[in-house]
Amino acid sequence: MGAIIKKEFKSYFLSPIGYIYIGVFLLTCSIFFYLDVFAYLSTDFPYMFGSAATILTFIVPLITMRMFSEERKNGTEQLLLTSPRSITQIVLGKFIAAALVVLVSVLLTLIYFGILCYFGEPQLGKSLVAILGFALLAIAYVSFGMFASSLTENQVVSAVITIAVFILLWFLPSFSSAFVDFSLMEAFYESFYLGTISIKNLVLLVSFSALFVVFTIMVLQRRKSVK
């Protein structure tokens, strides 16, 4: 699996996509850091993520759309699937590589924490919890994006599916309170954002990721007999 992770992670930075993702993410984070934290002269670092969480909807598809669609379109999928690696290894390898890219971008937000430290005394614990929650949210998004990418060989289609579902997940709770318990974004806002870890929300985010990793494996396994 290590080989796949290494190659996938590297290939994000061989093409401009990895840089674009991290660049756009940090750009929006800077804006929100200024608007939500710096402008109020506050030291509540987690507030920055409040708006940044919505941006994930639009930038996570940037890194997930190519995961399987590109391989399928170029036919390189054939190389992977005929190598002595199981589908589970392949999917997990790709998932971990994409999750690492996201994680790197999230950890880079510690820069802002450093800036706050210079001006005041932000709470380290609260900030770390917020970062953890935000990372989990982003990884859950990655897992769904990967699933969408395994469905089609067209990168644009997979990106559009991903964005559409994320927007639904975002706004469904405002239509009916029945969805509140199942909304990823609510899970983040309800606890991690406020500096607390709730088991319920932690389980929701992690199990969502796991679920779509398993779904992706199933899709690929099934395609073997349909293709």
Binding site: S11, S15, G75, E77, Q78, L79, T82, S83, P84, R85
Partner: peptide, 29 residues
């Protein structure tokens, strides 16, 4: 699959790797 080396029809390759990187990757796989 460990005993088989396969060269597919349309020669699919990872275009953003160098030749050596590609063969290295296949060796790892």
């Amino acid at each position: 699959k460990r005993q088989i080396g396969y060269m597919p029809e349309s020669t699919p390759l990872y275009n953003d790797l160098t030749v050596r990187e590609f063969v290295n990757y296949m060796a790892d796989l």
